[in-house]
Every structure is written in C-alpha cells, then in structure tokens.
C-alpha cells in the first residue's frame, strides 16, 4: 500500500507501523464517575468495520508523525490522511 502522507506525499506503507482504531485518541477522563467502565471500553472494545475505517499509523521509517488514515478495509482505498496531532486537537485534546 501507499499512504499519502500529508507532509511528505506518497510513502510506501512498509515505512509505517500500524496501531489500530483511531478511537485510541479518545482517551477517557480518569476522574470521571464512570472512569473504570470508560477505560475498559477504550482499551478493549473496537468496531471492526468492513468498509471505511479510521486508523492510526506511525511513520516510524519517516518523520515519526502519527497519522489518522481513513482506509476502506475492503478495497484498501485511502480517502483521507491527517496528522493525528491535528485530529487530537480538533477533538479537544490538549495537555
């Protein structure tokens, strides 16, 4: 596969390390009432869609950016690639 890196352009997927569902960005609040339950879901429960999937890839053999790649698991078509940092910020994550 070739991942179109938002900064570096098309790069061979062999340069990347796959982590999994981009929902791993949504780490729960440790002080919330339901923190134990929320962390359980966060750590263990994932959707496994046949189709579009937002997933985390790390450009280990490149610029060390974490990326959120939207990939169709049926066709491998990649429709969107974002810097995970931007995604995290957009989702309200900060410090």
């Amino acid at each position: 596969m070739i991942i179109p890196h938002p900064l570096l352009g098309p790069r061979d997927s062999s340069e990347f390390v796959y982590l999994g569902d981009a929902s791993l960005i949504d780490r729960p609040d440790w002080q919330a009432e339901d923190a134990a339950e929320a962390f359980h879901e966060y750590a263990y429960l994932r959707d496994n869609p046949a189709g579009e999937h937002r997933e985390l890839w790390y450009h280990e053999g490149g610029d060390r950016s974490w990326l959120v790649v939207t990939r169709n698991t049926m066709t491998h078509e990649i429709s969107k690639v974002e810097l995970a940092r931007d995604v995290a910020r957009a989702q309200g994550r900060s410090k």
Binding site: I25, Y58, E60, V87, A88, R93, S94, K95
Partner: peptide, 19 residues
C-alpha cells in the same frame, strides 16, 4: 527501546498534543 519510543510519540502526539 523501539516500542517505548513509539509509545511515547503516541502519547505526545495523539493524547496530549499541546504538551
């Protein structure tokens, strides 16, 4: 070594992007 570094980058970029 490699995994920890990757993990730390994950924490830095994906969990606490403004640190």
């Amino acid at each position: 070594a490699v995994n920890v570094y990757r993990h730390m980058e994950f924490v830095r970029q994906c969990l606490f992007p403004d640190m």
